[in-house]
Amino acid sequence: MTDGTLLSIKDLVVEFPTGAGTVRAVDHVSLELGYGERLGIVGESGSGKSVLARTAMGLTRPGTARISGQVTIAGHPVLELGERRRRALWGREVAMVFQDPLSALHPITPIGEQIAEAARRDPRTTRRQAAARAVELLETVGIPQATRRVHARAHELSGGMRQRVAIAMAIACRPKLLFADEPTTALDVTVQARILDLFDQLCAEFGIGLVMVSHDLGVVGRHTDHVAVMYAGRIAERGPVRAVFARPSMRYTSALMAAIPRHRAAEQSLPRPIPGQPPNLLAPPPGCRFGPRCGQASPRCHAEQPPLLALGDAPGHEYACWHPGEADR
């Protein structure tokens, strides 16, 4: 395309007016993703990661939220487009896999029809071709006996199968960009791994760019190239996965890593939970938003918001912390 950038988010702010005041769910977030790259967005519940993904895709309705900033997907200025022109992108250039595959699939329509409907988003596809494509897609996402399964309904499938169907639906028109909003949270651990492997396989096979939203840093670390850690609507740290894992520089990132359970004997230590709760976004703390929960916070942390600073170890590794360094183990 234009400059090799698949997704570009610049200075995105998303605010929801509520009865109690305005909630700023996404606070001046900028991100970039190249074609075929995989980005993980990690954060706790309420950190704004899902809102970020939905808004970046253009799904957040302008009537419900105040949105400012710019989002470009494959050269299309998403936020400047009206609903009709966004719709032209959805399902074709960009698609989304949702969290709970049972509620994401239509309860009555057979899954084959739902996938065929997605395939028909390409106007050159005939009804007959779309039906054949549904079978083919089910095979692609690893569902056996696809010719028979197209007639099944969502409630007749297991959770993992349902998510595979949702993925088949999302990739039906070979989108350039795929958002996955906590795609494995509703699944068993053993199924989770297989679904994540499927994402890896599809991204490699079709050159799909992936934005995977997750609360699980471990998942993101193994299945993406870049990671962005979000805290209370802001980017706390981002960079290549390797660099961030090797040298987590924002205190929240290190705390998140300390909270991952480990199995290997050399690293045997109990996961350390992060004390406290994420801040109330109606009245966020001044300065660093992680300050109140951070063991190393200084008066400066409570007074001044730390900017995103580049770290020398790898291009693109940035963090927002006044006192970078690993948390004490």
Binding site: L59, H106, E117
Partner: peptide, 14 residues
């Protein structure tokens, strides 16, 4: 209000 309607919208259905 169900999620599958959001999914339909995200599929680009009119």
């Amino acid at each position: 209000g169900q999620e599958f309607m959001n999914v339909a919208r995200a599929k680009g259905i009119s």
